[in-house]
Computed example of a mutant assay.
Amino acid sequence: MKSKTGDLVFVHAYKHNGKLYRSWEKVSIFEETENYIILINEEVLITEVTGRKWKTNEPAIWFFFKEDWYNIICMFKERGINYYCNLASPYIFEEGTVKYIDYDLDFKVFNDFSYKILDLKEFNRNRITWNYSRDIIEKVWKSVDEIKEKIKTKQKPFVHEYVNDIWNKYLELKNKD
């Protein structure tokens, strides 16, 4: 059964060893195609593997891809849209849950499109601990290059107007209910 706009789903992030390490509850589906799914986060409850629970601070749009080794969160901050990119396996969607494996490296992209790459030590530690295959390591580094290029050339979703358009369409749909 295909999901529809407004359906609420879970998101589960796993580590390479197969263990769930973070989950998000009641994330809303905005759009699903054969190639991607777009989710909306508004005051979503997040549970860490440690048991710590917290809610998202700001609304966000989350892009997951069937082929790409990353997902991208577009966060609406006071000073504009920031992006957070998780280097991760392509997602699968089963039993009302979007699932992916997190491969540690992250991009924090600021409103002016400057960025920082985060968690390099964690990636290097985990790739040894969990014996990431050469194929996975190559896909992660190829994805780092793809994300840098998308940021530099302002390809979707790194386009503020595009992200704002999705948000405005979401608000229109939400206000119809």
Rank of each mutant, 00 (worst) to 15 (best):
K2Q: 13
S3F: 14
K4N: 09
G6D: 09
D7V: 01
L8F: 09
L8S: 07
V9R: 01
F10S: 14
V11P: 04
H12A: 10
K15L: 10
H16T: 04
H16M: 04
K19E: 14
R22Q: 15
R22K: 14
R22H: 07
E25Q: 13
K26H: 15
V27F: 04
S28K: 13
I29A: 06
I29H: 02
E31R: 08
E31V: 05
E32D: 08
E32G: 03
T33Y: 11
Y36P: 03
L39G: 03
N41Y: 15
N41F: 15
E42A: 09
E43W: 09
I46W: 06
I46E: 09
T47R: 06
E48H: 08
E48S: 06
V49T: 12
T50F: 05
T50E: 07
R52N: 11
K53E: 12
K53P: 06
K53R: 13
K53V: 04
T56P: 07
N57I: 08
N57C: 08
N57H: 11
A60P: 08
A60D: 09
A60W: 06
F63N: 06
K66D: 05
E67Q: 13
D68M: 14
W69A: 02
Y70K: 07
I72Y: 07
I72G: 06
I72S: 02
I73S: 13
F76E: 02
K77L: 12
K77I: 06
E78L: 03
I81S: 04
I81A: 02
I81H: 06
N82M: 11
Y83E: 01
Y83K: 04
Y83V: 00
C85Y: 12
C85N: 09
C85L: 13
N86A: 11
N86Q: 11
L87F: 11
P90E: 12
Y91L: 05
I92C: 09
I92Q: 10
F93Q: 01
F93C: 02
E94H: 03
D102F: 07
Y103D: 03
L105G: 01
L105E: 00
V109M: 06
F110Q: 00
N111M: 11
D112N: 15
F113T: 08
F113G: 09
S114Q: 08
Y115N: 02
K116W: 04
I117Q: 01
K121V: 06
F123C: 00
N124C: 07
R125P: 11
R134C: 04
D135R: 01
I136K: 01
I137Q: 07
W141S: 02
S143E: 00
E146W: 02
I147E: 04
K148H: 06
K148C: 10
E149T: 13
E149L: 12
T153E: 14
Q155A: 03
V159I: 14
V159C: 11
E161P: 08
Y162D: 11
V163K: 00
N164P: 06
D165V: 10
N168H: 12
N168C: 09
N168E: 14
K169Q: 07
Y170L: 00
L171E: 05
N175S: 09
N175P: 02
N175A: 07
N175M: 05
D177R: 15
